[in-house]
């Protein structure tokens, strides 16, 4: 058991012939992911690492069964590609594309929701179940199998913390990077809810950042619904007000979205808030000892 994906998940790659699409397809195959088909309009009939390429998702659907799609297409065509993937009746869509127009994102999220497709992203690194497979960009070398479930907005931060934990012999049951926002299909709260139900997960790590109110919403959910220990690191404590540091969602305006509010709300929900990776490792070691 694991969250979102497992060894039986069959995946189609949109934009498989592109630069990052093909690179990531290779990395996913190496990680043990079952990739059954790829799509790039106009490139039907080709092969990428032995994976057949089709012009349309529906065309691939006639020849293969798949539950998940990962999308590496450019921002201008992302909306249509997502509609096409969702129309194929998939369960999971991982949208890695960044800088999609906000109103396109609004429509993609609404369409996925109406059709019962879980949408991770946009602008996300996706999900890895260490030692099993991944539908995303996480470099396998940073992760090892274990009992800690991580959710992060930032991809790089999830690699950083995965690596830090692995360096300290703490394995992970799953690592999800949901994107820098400010709009998300799959939220931090959704990830925490899945980890709470996941028998492989003993400790949940919430990697948050300044800006918006999603950490606060997650804290409210944790307070009511989560029994497993949650450890949180909020980055951007020293960021200047009113400026975005690379993530559109990470912007503090007035008193909304400050690290101080987030930390206080999380602590009030019983979350163990740590200040740096060293404290994070110590806290998880202590909690795992207690749980084990």
């Amino acid at each position: 058991m694991s969250i979102l994906i497992d060894k039986n998940t069959r995946v189609l790659v949109q934009g498989i012939t592109g630069k990052s699409g093909s690179l990531q397809t290779k990395a996913m195959l190496d990680a043990g992911t079952q990739i059954v088909a790829g799509v790039t309009p106009g490139k039907g009939g080709q092969e990428v690492f032995g994976i057949p390429v089709y012009n349309y998702v529906a065309e691939a659907k006639r020849a293969h069964d798949f539950e998940a799609v990962i999308c590496f297409v450019p921002p201008k065509v992302a909306k249509d590609s997502c509609f096409e993937a969702i129309d194929a009746g998939i369960r999971l869509l991982v949208l890695t594309t960044e800088e999609i127009a906000m109103h396109d994102v609004v429509e993609i999220i609404a369409y996925a929701k109406a059709h019962g497709t879980t949408l991770i992203g946009p602008g996300c690194a996706g999900v890895i179940i260490p030692g099993v497979c991944k539908v995303g960009a996480h470099p396998v070398r940073f992760f090892q199998k274990g009992k800690v479930g991580i959710v992060s907005k930032s991809g790089a931060l999830s690699y950083e913390i995965g690596k830090t934990l692995s360096d300290n012999q703490i394995g992970q049951s799953g690592v999800v990077a949901i994107g820098g926002g400010p709009l998300w299909g799959f939220t931090q709260r959704d990830a925490v809810a899945l980890y709470e139900q996941d028998p492989d997960t003993e400790v949940i790590v919430l990697l948050g950042e300044i800006g918006g109110g999603s950490e606060e919403a997650t804290a409210a959910y944790i307070k009511q619904n989560v029994k497993k220990p949650v450890v949180s690191l909020i980055v951007g404590r020293n960021a200047p007000t009113g400026k975005s540091l690379g993530h559109a969602g990470a912007i503090v305006s007035g008193n909304v979205g400050t690290a101080a509010t987030k930390i206080a709300t999380l602590q009030d929900a019983g979350v163990h808030v740590v200040k740096n990776p060293v404290e994070l490792v110590e806290m998880i070691q202590r909690l795992l000892k207690k749980e084990g």
Partner: peptide
């Protein structure tokens, strides 16, 4: 090479 790690590094440098 990432916004999240950049913010984390900024915090660690300040600390």
């Amino acid at each position: 090479d990432g916004a999240g790690t950049g913010m984390l590094t900024l915090d660690l440098l300040h600390d």
